[in-house]
Measured scan of single mutants.
Amino acid sequence: HNLTITQGKLFFHYNPKLCLSEIHKMEEVSGTKGRQERNDIALKTNGDQASCENELLKFSYIRTSFDKILLRWEPYWPPDFRDLLGFMLFYKEAPYQNVTEFDGQDACGSNSWTVVDIDPPLRSNDPKSQNHPGWLMRGLKPWTQYAIFVKTLVTFSDERRTYGAKSDIIYVQTDATNPSVPLDPISVSNSSSQIILKWKPPSDPNGNITHYLVFWERQAEDSELFELDYCLKGLKLPSRTWSPPFESEDSQKHNQSEYEDSAGECCSCPKTDSQILKELEESSFRKTFEDYLHNVVFVPRKTSSGTGAEDPRPSRKRRSLGDVGNVTVAVPTVAAFPNTSSTSVPTSPEEHRPFEKVVNKESLVISGLRHFTGYRIELQACNQDTPEERCSVAAYVSARTMPEAKADDIVGPVTHEIFENNVVHLMWQEPKEPNGLIVLYEVSYRRYGDEELHLCVSRKHFALERGCRLRGLSPGNYSVRIRATSLAGNGSWTEPTYFYVTDYLDVPSNIA
């Protein structure tokens, strides 16, 4: 807008934040220059609390790290170098490059900038070799853009010569660093050979998330399962459950009422301010606690030095998902009996873990797994792929695949051998790939016309006998059925096997 004052003059007093240069501009645009008398524009009460600059400061050096910015700028000295009290560095987070010096300023003089007072450097006698002032900004957020400017702080001049310097606002972004852990990993099994893994992005990506790394490792069953005799009275049979499938998407929606109208769909109840505040506090606490764990609990591995020492970490090797089922080394339970199943799973520490690289999504279907087997899954978020990966501390989750139908069934015939004193040795093959492992066998036998009897055969007993022995049988026709019990439950009964026990007292003698 054009402003013209045809008559009258300007009068400025007691404006401590208004620089004289701005008042002189007002004289020019209003056409009143030359009308004012000496005392109409006070030299001592206008701009006496402001830094009124008329020179431009330029930054000469900028260096960044993930949490620091090192700045240096060209030296500046007023005509009387004693008038320079120091520099004021202003900075704040700036997602967009549209910041002005006066953003967030209120009537009390406060604003949204963080201000650092910096002492002037030592003055050199040689004007050509003056030290460049600077400042190291610490405690910054990774991968965050900051708006920065600097200006001088000078003393009051009796001659009211307006001098000083100020830089333009520059924008500097800190470097990326390792992201925080992925949030809320959930693993479920939808079949006997697959596990579905879902997660949420890290709360602090500290860069642009480029991919996720998912490692999985087959877990050995508890050692007590191999040692305890679950045929003993009072000892509860062990059981394991597989990871249940995901709930429906509708039930997972946030901010939804727990109660549904019987007449149909209901609208979600909005969260109160107290609920939102509580969630923010919980989120802040979780982030602080995660940072504490990362800094205190997890110790970084030592990389190899120039002395030739090897990095103890196993090298990563990509495998196809079809090879995942046989990740671990199978060892027989008892070496003397080769027909026992290889369900003991000690994992070799030198073995390469299978892994998958996930790009542009937060889910993965891990296939080719062994049925009813526990897996430990390790999830890392990465925001750099080359020249070397920059990934987060791992988040861990466990899951067990679903049982395989008929995996616990005894394959092959049940054979028998009759000894003296009416002892019958029953023999059968253990299931080759049971659900988890076989903890015991149930032997059901009966003599024709009598009630059915049951015998429990422990895992250890089966390994020693290759089956079991029935003792003290009365003469007669017998039928026997056997079924295995694994961590997933009972298998199917075998087809009945028949044998006849004679009275050993009636056996004919070869003595003449």
Score class of each variant (00 low, 15 high):
residue 203 S to A: 13
residue 203 S to K: 09
residue 204 D to P: 03
residue 204 D to A: 10
residue 206 N to K: 09
residue 206 N to Q: 14
residue 206 N to G: 03
residue 207 G to H: 04
residue 207 G to L: 01
residue 209 I to V: 08
residue 209 I to M: 05
residue 210 T to I: 10
residue 215 F to S: 05
residue 215 F to A: 13
residue 216 W to I: 09
residue 217 E to Q: 15
residue 217 E to G: 10
residue 219 Q to T: 02
residue 220 A to T: 15
residue 221 E to W: 06
residue 221 E to H: 02
residue 221 E to S: 12
residue 221 E to V: 06
residue 223 S to Y: 11
residue 223 S to M: 12
residue 224 E to W: 10
residue 225 L to C: 04
residue 225 L to S: 07
residue 225 L to N: 02
residue 226 F to I: 07
residue 226 F to W: 02
residue 227 E to G: 14
residue 229 D to R: 10
residue 229 D to W: 10
residue 230 Y to P: 03
residue 230 Y to Q: 15
residue 230 Y to I: 07
residue 230 Y to R: 07
residue 232 L to C: 15
residue 232 L to K: 04
residue 234 G to R: 13
residue 235 L to A: 11
residue 235 L to S: 07
residue 237 L to D: 09
residue 238 P to Y: 08
residue 239 S to T: 10
residue 239 S to D: 11
residue 239 S to M: 05
residue 240 R to G: 08
residue 242 W to R: 09
residue 242 W to H: 14
residue 243 S to P: 10
residue 243 S to E: 04
residue 244 P to F: 10
residue 244 P to R: 13
residue 244 P to N: 11
residue 245 P to Q: 12
residue 245 P to K: 07
residue 246 F to A: 04
residue 248 S to A: 11
residue 249 E to A: 09
residue 249 E to H: 13
residue 251 S to R: 06
residue 251 S to M: 15
residue 252 Q to Y: 05
residue 254 H to E: 03
residue 255 N to S: 10
residue 255 N to E: 08
residue 255 N to G: 07
residue 255 N to D: 11
residue 255 N to L: 03
residue 255 N to R: 05
residue 256 Q to P: 06
residue 256 Q to Y: 03
residue 257 S to A: 13
residue 257 S to D: 05
residue 258 E to W: 13
residue 259 Y to I: 03
residue 259 Y to T: 13
residue 260 E to W: 09
residue 262 S to H: 10
residue 262 S to D: 12
residue 263 A to T: 11
residue 265 E to A: 12
residue 265 E to P: 08
residue 269 C to A: 06
residue 270 P to C: 02
residue 271 K to A: 12
residue 274 S to T: 06
residue 274 S to M: 15
residue 276 I to F: 14
residue 276 I to D: 03
residue 277 L to R: 14
residue 278 K to L: 06
residue 279 E to I: 08
residue 281 E to I: 14
residue 282 E to G: 10
residue 282 E to P: 14
residue 283 S to A: 05
residue 284 S to D: 04
residue 284 S to M: 14
residue 285 F to P: 11
residue 286 R to Y: 08
residue 289 F to R: 07
residue 291 D to H: 13
residue 291 D to E: 15
residue 291 D to I: 11
residue 292 Y to I: 02
residue 292 Y to H: 12
residue 292 Y to L: 09
residue 293 L to P: 02
residue 293 L to A: 14
residue 295 N to F: 15
residue 297 V to R: 09
residue 298 F to P: 04
residue 299 V to T: 03
residue 300 P to Q: 05
residue 300 P to I: 04
residue 301 R to E: 15
residue 301 R to L: 10
residue 304 S to R: 03
residue 304 S to V: 13
residue 304 S to T: 04
residue 305 S to H: 02
residue 305 S to N: 07
residue 305 S to G: 04
residue 306 G to K: 13
residue 307 T to G: 09
residue 309 A to H: 14
residue 309 A to F: 12
residue 311 D to R: 05
residue 313 R to Y: 06
residue 313 R to S: 05
residue 314 P to R: 08
residue 316 R to C: 01
residue 316 R to I: 15
residue 316 R to F: 04
residue 318 R to W: 15
residue 319 R to N: 07
residue 320 S to E: 12
residue 322 G to A: 15
residue 323 D to G: 11
residue 324 V to A: 08
residue 325 G to F: 10
residue 325 G to M: 14
residue 326 N to R: 13
residue 327 V to S: 07
residue 328 T to F: 10
residue 328 T to C: 09
residue 329 V to D: 13
residue 331 V to M: 07
residue 331 V to S: 05
residue 332 P to S: 11
residue 332 P to M: 10
residue 332 P to F: 04
residue 334 V to R: 06
residue 335 A to D: 14
residue 337 F to R: 12
residue 337 F to D: 04
residue 337 F to H: 04
residue 337 F to Q: 10
residue 338 P to N: 11
residue 339 N to S: 11
residue 339 N to Q: 12
residue 340 T to H: 03
residue 340 T to R: 10
residue 341 S to P: 05
residue 341 S to C: 10
residue 341 S to H: 06
residue 341 S to G: 09
residue 341 S to Q: 08
residue 342 S to M: 08
residue 342 S to A: 14
residue 342 S to K: 03
residue 344 S to D: 04
residue 344 S to P: 10
residue 344 S to R: 15
residue 345 V to H: 08
residue 347 T to N: 06
residue 347 T to A: 11
residue 348 S to A: 04
residue 349 P to K: 04
residue 350 E to K: 10
residue 350 E to L: 12
residue 350 E to V: 15
residue 351 E to F: 04
residue 352 H to I: 04
residue 352 H to R: 09
residue 354 P to S: 06
residue 355 F to Q: 03
residue 355 F to V: 09
residue 356 E to D: 05
residue 357 K to L: 14
residue 357 K to Y: 04
residue 359 V to I: 12
residue 360 N to A: 13
residue 361 K to N: 08
residue 361 K to D: 06
residue 362 E to N: 10
residue 362 E to V: 09
residue 362 E to H: 07
residue 363 S to R: 09
residue 363 S to F: 12
residue 364 L to M: 13
residue 365 V to K: 01
residue 366 I to Q: 03
residue 369 L to G: 02
residue 369 L to Q: 15
residue 369 L to I: 02
residue 369 L to E: 01
residue 371 H to E: 11
residue 371 H to S: 09
residue 372 F to I: 02
residue 372 F to L: 07
residue 373 T to I: 10
residue 373 T to H: 08
residue 373 T to K: 12
residue 376 R to S: 04
residue 376 R to I: 11
residue 377 I to C: 07
residue 377 I to N: 01
residue 377 I to Q: 02
residue 378 E to K: 08
residue 379 L to C: 09
residue 379 L to Y: 02
residue 379 L to D: 01
residue 380 Q to C: 10
residue 381 A to E: 01
residue 382 C to L: 00
residue 383 N to S: 05
residue 384 Q to H: 15
residue 384 Q to A: 11
residue 386 T to K: 08
residue 388 E to R: 02
residue 390 R to S: 11
residue 390 R to V: 05
residue 391 C to T: 11
residue 392 S to N: 02
residue 394 A to N: 04
residue 395 A to R: 05
residue 395 A to I: 05
residue 396 Y to C: 11
residue 397 V to W: 11
residue 397 V to P: 14
residue 398 S to A: 08
residue 399 A to I: 11
residue 401 T to I: 12
residue 401 T to V: 07
residue 401 T to D: 00
residue 402 M to Q: 15
residue 403 P to R: 11
residue 405 A to D: 04
residue 406 K to T: 09
residue 406 K to D: 13
residue 407 A to S: 05
residue 409 D to V: 05
residue 411 V to S: 08
residue 413 P to G: 13
residue 414 V to T: 04
residue 414 V to R: 02
residue 416 H to W: 06
residue 416 H to D: 00
residue 418 I to F: 09
residue 418 I to L: 06
residue 419 F to Y: 13
residue 422 N to A: 04
residue 422 N to R: 12
residue 423 V to T: 07
residue 424 V to L: 10
residue 425 H to F: 08
residue 428 W to K: 01
residue 428 W to Y: 01
residue 428 W to F: 09
residue 431 P to Q: 04
residue 431 P to W: 00
residue 432 K to S: 13
residue 432 K to Q: 03
residue 432 K to L: 07
residue 433 E to R: 10
residue 435 N to D: 01
residue 436 G to Y: 02
residue 436 G to V: 13
residue 436 G to S: 15
residue 437 L to I: 03
residue 437 L to W: 01
residue 439 V to Q: 04
residue 441 Y to V: 02
residue 442 E to K: 08
residue 443 V to G: 00
residue 444 S to P: 00
residue 444 S to N: 00
residue 445 Y to P: 01
residue 445 Y to I: 02
residue 446 R to S: 00
residue 447 R to F: 02
residue 447 R to T: 09
residue 448 Y to T: 13
residue 448 Y to V: 10
residue 449 G to K: 06
residue 450 D to K: 13
residue 451 E to P: 12
residue 452 E to K: 07
residue 452 E to T: 05
residue 453 L to P: 04
residue 454 H to T: 08
residue 454 H to V: 13
residue 454 H to E: 14
residue 457 V to K: 13
residue 457 V to F: 15
residue 457 V to Y: 11
residue 458 S to T: 06
residue 458 S to L: 10
residue 458 S to I: 03
residue 460 K to V: 15
residue 462 F to A: 07
residue 463 A to G: 09
residue 463 A to F: 11
residue 465 E to P: 01
residue 466 R to P: 07
residue 467 G to W: 03
residue 467 G to Y: 01
residue 468 C to E: 01
residue 468 C to K: 08
residue 468 C to S: 08
residue 468 C to H: 10
residue 469 R to V: 10
residue 470 L to D: 01
residue 470 L to N: 01
residue 471 R to P: 08
residue 471 R to I: 11
residue 472 G to D: 11
residue 472 G to R: 05
residue 474 S to I: 09
residue 474 S to Y: 13
residue 475 P to C: 07
residue 476 G to I: 00
residue 476 G to N: 00
residue 476 G to T: 01
residue 476 G to W: 00
residue 478 Y to H: 07
residue 479 S to I: 12
residue 479 S to G: 05
residue 482 I to D: 01
residue 482 I to L: 07
residue 482 I to C: 02
residue 484 A to L: 06
residue 486 S to V: 01
residue 486 S to A: 03
residue 487 L to C: 10
residue 488 A to N: 08
residue 489 G to T: 06
residue 489 G to P: 02
residue 490 N to G: 15
residue 492 S to I: 13
residue 492 S to L: 15
residue 495 E to N: 13
residue 497 T to P: 00
residue 497 T to C: 15
residue 497 T to Q: 12
residue 497 T to R: 10
residue 499 F to K: 01
residue 500 Y to M: 05
residue 501 V to K: 06
residue 501 V to H: 03
residue 501 V to M: 11
residue 503 D to W: 12
residue 503 D to E: 10
residue 504 Y to E: 14
residue 504 Y to T: 09
residue 506 D to Y: 07
residue 506 D to L: 06
residue 508 P to S: 03
residue 509 S to Q: 09
residue 509 S to I: 15
